[in-house]
Computed example of a mutant assay.
Amino acid sequence: MYEGAVQELIDELGRLPGIGPKSAQRVAFHILEADSDDMKRLAEAIVSVKEKVKFCQICFNVSEEDTCRICRDASRDRSVICVVEESKDVMAIERTRSFNGLYHVLGGSINPIAGVGPEQLHVRELLSRLSDDEVQEVIVATDPNLEGEATATYLVRTLGPIGIDLTRLASGLPVGGDLEYADDVTLGRAFEGRRSLS
């Protein structure tokens, strides 16, 4: 245990995802040794992101405005919505340049062990987006892991009766993996080979 502020910093860093006690200690000591101005900019960036960034009122992607740049872009294909778990998945797909439709961010996946059911996700908002006749296809792009598959199955059961084409990203993505870690070629091929669920 370190004294006061150093231990508090290590404890707070250790609460971040993917950072264990040893990593938190390394980062804390890096912060201590780094240039003061650099660390002030880091602190300001953290405060700024918490003050400025919110979620798009339409798709729930991160945005500094009420609607994100993708929803505001008139050149996007409004007949296709790609449903993803998190905003980081939107960026992973955008990097492939294989998709020009809109997105809907669920805000997670169904995980009964963690107490996350469909009610905690943005499924109702997705249903309301599908109430007009503009959307012709919904691509289910949840992670190919247990929670992602459970979420995809739920979406198929919920959206099936609406009569919209439902597709799922093709295989090629590693089972148990996350979209954000897939390389651009694999993710692009998965989009091209998506299969119908309805």
Results as ranks from 00 to 15, higher is better:
Thr142Ala: 08
Ala43Pro: 12
Ile162Glu: 00
Phe99Asn: 01
Met39Gly: 08
Ser198Phe: 06
Leu127Thr: 05
Lys40Val: 13
Thr167Trp: 06
Val80Gln: 11
Val140Tyr: 00
Pro144Leu: 02
Val140Lys: 10
Glu147Phe: 05
Ser98Ala: 14
Phe99Asp: 07
Lys54Thr: 08
Val116Glu: 02
Glu33Ser: 13
Gln7Tyr: 05
Arg97Ala: 15
Gln120Trp: 06
Val80His: 09
Ser171Ala: 09
Phe99Tyr: 15
Asp89Glu: 08
Leu16Lys: 06
Asp35Asn: 10
Asp183Ser: 11
Gly108Pro: 04
Gln120Val: 10
Gly107Tyr: 06
Glu85Tyr: 00
Glu65Tyr: 08
Thr186Glu: 02
Asp77Val: 05
Leu197Arg: 11
Glu12Gln: 07
Ile58Asn: 15
Glu51Arg: 15
Val53Trp: 08
Ala34Val: 00
Leu126Pro: 05
Asp11Trp: 02
Val84Cys: 06
Ala74Gly: 10
Arg95Pro: 05
Val27Glu: 03
Val80Ile: 13
Gly107Asp: 00
Val105Ala: 04
Val49Pro: 02
Leu159Ile: 10
Gly163Ala: 00
Thr67Lys: 14
Arg72Lys: 14
Glu8Gly: 11
Asn111Gln: 10
Glu180Gly: 02
Ala114Gly: 06
Val116Asp: 05
Leu179Tyr: 02
Arg168Ala: 08
Val138Pro: 03
Tyr154Arg: 05
Arg194Gly: 05
Gly14Leu: 01
Ser198Ala: 14
Arg15Met: 13
Arg195Met: 12
Gly172Ile: 06
Glu94Ile: 02
Glu51Cys: 00
Pro118Ala: 14
Arg195Gly: 09
Ala114Thr: 09
His104Asn: 02
Ala5Met: 12
Ile58Ala: 14
Ile19Glu: 07
Gly115Cys: 07
Gly177Lys: 04
Asp165Gly: 12
Arg97Thr: 13
Ile58Asp: 12
Gly115His: 04
Glu65Pro: 14
Asp77Leu: 05
Gly18Leu: 00
Arg26Trp: 07
Arg157Tyr: 10
Arg15Lys: 13
Val62Ile: 15
Asp66Trp: 01
Cys59Ala: 00
Gly108Trp: 04
Glu137Asp: 06
Asp184Asn: 12
Met1Trp: 08
Pro144Cys: 03
Phe60Arg: 04
Val175Leu: 12
Asn61Ala: 01
Glu33Asn: 14
Ser48Lys: 15
Val49Ala: 13
Phe60Leu: 08
Leu146Asp: 09
